[in-house]
């Protein structure tokens, strides 16, 4: 297993030397969505608190670092942590409202969606950050401004993001924090009876998750160079964030990565071909169908199923 990991890492490091720029772009999005999925995984997967408003954290992180870079001249290398901290603070507010007052299941989903929508509407109306027109970043291609002319640099940036988030989740998983989150997901009252301060650990999970997502906002801003409130804070982006870990296996370390490798190319291809035929947004219908299929046939996700298949084959 260790050797498999090292081999996979070697392939990923060498890949930019051989593949086309188009494939590289797809890989960049695979890594980026795997990163976002991993961040969501902390609260949505391990702690089992279904947030469907994670776009809010991405948006806050993206706007914070972009505005700071354009208006104040703060390098996005630092701005990404400011954005992360602001997103973490927003996560703390949402988490406290949800967890302190015992919102579970669908009520928590609604709370997170509502907050993301409020963010979207507010930013749409704040002219100082461009309002509905959006906020634009000047392209300089300067690495100090977190901008790169070469797609290969972006490739390594997103690879590092994905690996860093995965490393953080791996650390959490093995500690008391991770075991407690799993216990909360499985049965909150039983966890409480065994000495788990469920409010505290759910809050921590929410803050870690929203912080990481906010950090990802800087990549979004600097790579795309334009921020549209309806896109950055929109429900479709929240769905993009959560669907990969769910398909890959939420609450597992490699689920979000596997999910992103399955879904991101699929989304790209369907967006391209369906979009060409004038079927804009049709890939969202495909997502809906896929989500229903996963819930019905693969409720625990692709990764746990894969692990069981491999084990069964070894035994045979």
């Amino acid at each position: 297993m260790t050797w498999l990991g090292i081999a996979a890492l070697g392939v990923l490091l060498a890949l930019p030397a051989v593949v086309s720029s188009y494939v590289l772009t797809i890989l960049i999005f695979i890594f980026f969505y795997a990163f976002l999925g991993q961040a969501w995984n902390v609260v949505g997967g391990y702690a089992g608190q279904l947030s469907v408003g994670h776009a809010a954290f991405l948006g806050v992180g993206a706007y914070a670092s972009a505005v700071l870079a354009q208006e104040v001249g703060l390098s996005p290398w630092l701005g990404m942590f400011v954005g992360g901290a602001l997103a973490g603070a927003l996560g703390a507010v949402i988490g406290y409202l949800g967890f302190r007052f015992g919102l579970r299941g669908f009520y928590f989903v609604l709370l997170t969606v509502a907050f993301a929508e409020v963010c979207r509407i507010v930013v749409n109306n704040v002219e100082a950050v461009g309002g509905a027109v959006g906020f634009y970043i000047t392209f300089t291609g300067d690495p100090r401004q977190f901008q790169f002319r070469d797609n290969r640099a972006w490739y390594y940036v997103t690879l590092v993001l994905m690996l860093a988030a995965t490393g953080i989740v791996a650390l959490i998983e093995r500690r008391r924090f991770g075991v407690y989150l799993a216990a909360i997901r499985e049965d909150e009252s039983a966890a409480e009876a065994l000495g788990v301060d469920t409010l505290r650990y759910k809050m921590l999970a929410m803050i870690v998750s929203s912080f990481l997502t906010g950090v990802g906002g800087t990549f979004y801003a600097c790579y795309l160079l334009s921020l549209q409130p309806n896109a950055v804070f929109g429900i479709p982006l929240s769905v993009e964030i959560i669907i990969r870990p769910i398909v890959g296996g939420s609450g597992t370390l490699l689920g979000p990565i596997l999910g992103s490798f399955i879904l991101t190319p699929l989304a790209e291809v369907s967006r391209y071909y369906l979009g060409q035929g004038g079927w804009h947004g049709a890939h969202l219908i495909a997502y809906g169908v896929l989500l229903v299929a996963v819930v019905l046939f693969l409720p625990e996700g692709a990764y746990p199923r894969l692990v069981r298949l491999v084990r069964a084959r070894k035994r045979a």
Binding site: V179, A183, A191
Partner: peptide, 14 residues
């Protein structure tokens, strides 16, 4: 109220 998807040992570890 066992934690259903955890092993016996993990349950007790909590």
């Amino acid at each position: 109220r066992p934690f259903p998807r955890m092993t016996v040992l993990q349950n007790v570890e909590v």
